[in-house]
Design a protein around this nucleic acid. Structure first.
Length: 270
DNA sequence: CTCCGATCCTGATGGC
DNA sequence: TGCCATCAGGATCGGA
């Protein structure tokens, strides 16, 4: 899915198109997302106006003044603003139609995404326990080091835990660990403060570069303009098993860690 | 509390 | 060509 850079790319694309847009209707073609779309939204939304779009981790928050829509893209979701008369595809679970004839249409083949509403989104159960934003204050090497004390979980999985730091998924966890020279299966509690400083710097660097490239498109992801993200061309380890390391000319290896692969250079990462 | 595996769902891909 | 197993960018839940 869309990780932080893909969600931020989506947010930046949508904000100028949707801020000030007045909702005419919510059209639900398939409510069976990660959490079912609440039927009450169909009568709650019409007449409301989007005032701004925020991002928290991988969640988009569409501010309606009295509350917010919370959208998650799951593994395969994307959002576009198009003319409402455009015929929907088979995997487009909902449209938010606006009074100007445009609509915000979600596409999500795997249906792991979500459309929720909260009067107080930052205290919503899915959001209130998220860790700090990696691109804002509150995130740092010492923060990661403190949270990691005595923990045996692999550092790759530690970074995937949104309650530790928000928005990092498997691609950027692997890329940041390469940049910091840390082996993905090393126990989080057995990494020095100095190395956590490098890791925090690497995370910020990788995320910023990915946002600048419009995110990473492996298969499904498209920005709100329908274009893919180009960070795939800058990936140094993710998806590169058997290919040469750019730093040492060793060979990138793949490690099965639970259900998701860890990619790393055995020469550069310890 | 922490950790790990199962789970939701569909589609692409590769082996036989 | 067809069939089957495996693997995917997430995140919650339950059991050990």
């Amino acid at each position: 899915m869309p990780e932080l850079p893909e969600v931020e790319t989506t947010r930046r694309g949508l904000a100028p198109l949707l801020c000030g847009a007045r909702i005419a209707a919510l059209i639900v073609r398939d409510p069976r997302l990660r959490w079912p779309i609440a039927p009450a939204l169909k009568r709650l939304l019409p007449g409301q106006t989007i005032t701004k779009i925020e991002r928290r981790g991988k969640y988009l928050l569409l501010d309606l003044g009295a509350g917010s829509l919370i959208i998650h893209l799951g593994m395969s979701g994307s959002l576009r603003v198009i003319a409402a008369e455009n015929p929907p595809g088979a995997w487009d679970p909902f449209d938010i139609a606006f009074t100007d004839g445009q609509c915000l249409r979600m596409r999500d083949p795997r249906r792991f995404g979500a459309l929720l509403y909260s009067e107080d989104p930052h205290h919503h159960p899915l959001i209130k326990n998220l860790g700090p934003e990696p691109l804002e204050t509150g995130f740092s090497g010492p923060y990661l080091y403190d949270r990691a004390r005595y923990r045996k979980v692999a550092i790759r999985d530690f970074l995937l835990n949104g309650h530790i730091v928000a928005g990092i998924g498997n691609i950027y966890a692997n890329e940041a660990l390469f940049e910091a020279g840390i082996h993905p299966s090393r126990a989080a509690g057995r990494i020095s403060l100095v190395r956590y400083e490098s890791l925090a710097t690497a995370i910020v660097d990788v995320l910023n570069r990915a946002i600048a490239a419009g995110g990473t498109t492996l298969k499904d992801f498209a920005g709100s303009d329908g274009r893919p993200g180009y960070f795939k061309q800058q990936l140094r380890v993710y998806g590169r098993e058997g290919e040469p390391c750019f730093r040492c000319h060793g060979t990138i290896a793949r490690l099965t860690m639970g259900a998701r692969s860890g990619y790393y250079c055995p020469e550069c990462q310890h």
